[in-house]
Every structure is written in structure tokens, then in C-alpha cells.
């Protein structure tokens, strides 16, 4: 009864099919409303987004700027929990094909149980995890085997301060893509991409890594998206999207008009 399971991963598939101008969008689960999760995901897919990061809200998001701090705070006040999120996502794979990534700080996942969390993500059809405060050393020595066994791509951040040796190691140990943090900063739009940042993107591009690169932090409009894409496979928008849906009564319309403004 040995059934051969062909292990596929939607993030891998995406980067196999597409090499340029990939648009990934982050949103905080439970924001702006507790029941917005499925609406946001389905409308992001319909609007032509390529990849979605579902943020699990946390009380102490140290890597985030004001906008995402606020969305985390509101989402928790709305009553969002990991268990509720898993429940909301139970049937999501009947509705969308788009690759899905869970983004969380370590503590909520640790408290839930890392293996149990991966198992649940696998059952739902989640393809990857971003846990910014789970460092490479801990990942490599304690958790890589668990993530691999559930086919979860672990996506790590690289910053302007990460040296080449470490970038190579991250590239070797992780999968899906490398999250290129655009500058030494917390999340949130900074306006334009500077020449210095472009040089940094090119420097990482020239390392010819195995994993594709997506640029995140400070990407908030069409111009910064296009610039970020010049030396990379694409970019990630978070805070600007959170602002776009913050005051909306019509989520569908605001999701679609925001994505249009980026892709136009």
C-alpha cells in the first residue's frame, strides 16, 4: 500500500513559473474586522496578487512600525487567536490556489506548540512560515526537521547588515524565497527607494543565490514596487495595504483598487 506522494509546494511552483514582478501582500488576521480573513484572501487572489502573508497578531511586535503595531493591537482587541484563525482558514483551499504563508512572532507559535502548529498549517494548505524572531541557529538546530516534515518553507530575513557568509548559509538552509529587508528599519513605508538601497539589492542579486529574492519593508506604492523588482523576483507590501483597508466598509473594493494602483 505504498502510495507515492508527490510533494509539491505552491511557493516553489510560483517561483518556478514566474521570475519577475511577483507581488506579495501581508495582512494582519483579525484586522480591520474579526471576520475579514477569507474576504481579504479571496479578493487578493482575484486582484492578481501572487503570494499572501497572513499575519498572526502579537501583543509585542518589535520588528514592526506604527501601522502594523496598530493592526496587531486592533486584531487582538477584536478577539483574534491562532485557534480562531485556523478555524477561519479551515476550508480556504476550496476557495483559493494562491500560495499562503503564515507570519508570526515566535511566542504564540511556541505556546501553541511548534510541531502542532506546523501540522495544522499543513492540513489547511499553508505553504511557508515567517517567524522573524526565530533565529537561524535555533531553526537549524531545533526546528528545521519539523518544518521540513510538514513541507513548510521557512523564509528568513536578510538585511543590509547580514554578511555574505551568513546569507549563503541562510540560502542553503531555508526555502521558498529570501525576504530581503530593504533597509535597517522596522516595517513601514519610507517613501522612495534610494540609490544606496538599489546598490544593496544588486549586491545580493549578484550573489546568485539558490532562492529567489523578494524585497520587503518600505514598499508602499507602484514606484517603490517597480524599483524593488529591478534586481529581484518581486516585493512585499504590508503597511501600505493595512492602511488601504483600515477605514473600508467595502473590503472587496478597497483591496482591488489598492492592488490595481500597484500593478497598473
Amino acid at each position: 500500500m505504498n502510495q507515492i506522494e508527490v510533494i509539491t509546494n505552491k511557493i516553489e511552483d510560483l517561483f518556478y513559473r514566474r521570475k519577475k514582478r511577483i507581488l506579495s501582500v501581508y495582512f494582519t488576521a483579525g484586522y480591520p474586522k474579526i471576520d475579514a480573513t477569507a474576504t481579504i484572501i479571496t479578493n487578493l487572489e482575484q486582484s492578481g496578487v501572487d503570494l499572501i502573508e497572513i499575519g498572526i497578531p502579537f501583543s509585542d511586535p518589535v520588528a514592526d512600525g506604527d501601522t502594523i503595531q496598530h493592526s496587531n493591537h486592533v486584531a487582538l482587541k477584536n478577539g483574534m487567536t491562532i485557534r480562531m484563525l485556523f478555524d477561519q482558514l479551515r476550508d480556504i483551499r476550496n476557495r483559493v490556489e494562491i500560495p499562503l504563508i503564515m507570519m508570526s512572532y515566535l511566542n504564540p507559535v511556541y505556546k501553541y506548540g511548534i510541531e502542532k502548529f506546523c501540522k495544522k498549517c499543513h492540513e489547511i494548505g499553508i505553504d511557508g512560515l515567517i517567524i522573524p524572531d526565530l533565529p537561524l541557529y535555533e531553526f537549524e538546530t531545533k526546528y528545521k526537521a519539523v518544518f521540513d516534515s510538514f513541507n513548510m518553507k521557512f523564509i528568513m530575513l536578510v538585511t543590509p547588515q547580514t554578511d555574505n557568509e551568513r546569507i549563503r548559509k541562510i540560502d542553503f538552509l531555508t526555502g521558498g524565497f529570501i525576504y530581503l529587508v530593504s533597509s535597517t528599519s522596522t516595517t513601514g513605508s519610507k517613501g522612495k527607494i534610494s540609490n544606496e538601497q538599489m546598490q544593496y539589492f544588486k549586491r545580493i542579486h549578484d550573489l546568485r543565490l539558490n532562492n529567489p529574492l523578494l524585497v520587503g519593508f518600505g514598499i508602499g506604492n507602484k514606484e517603490s514596487f517597480v524599483n524593488a523588482c529591478q534586481y529581484t523576483a518581486g516585493a512585499i507590501i504590508g503597511s501600505a495595504f493595512i492602511r488601504a483597508v483600515s477605514k473600508s466598509d467595502d473590503l472587496k473594493a478597497s483591496v482591488s483598487s489598492f492592488i490595481k494602483s500597484i500593478k497598473a
Partner: peptide, 21 residues
């Protein structure tokens, strides 16, 4: 050597702080 007291400790920082730490 790895920054632990028994099972407690470590350096759970986002990559942005890795170089400094």
C-alpha cells in the same frame, strides 16, 4: 557557549538585530 542557562536564554532576535548582538 550557546548563550543558554539550561533550557533558558538564547538570542531570539530578528535578523535586523543579529549583526549587533
Amino acid at each position: 557557549q550557546n548563550g543558554y542557562y539550561g533550557k533558558f536564554g538564547g538570542a531570539y532576535v530578528p535578523e535586523m538585530l543579529f549583526a549587533n548582538v
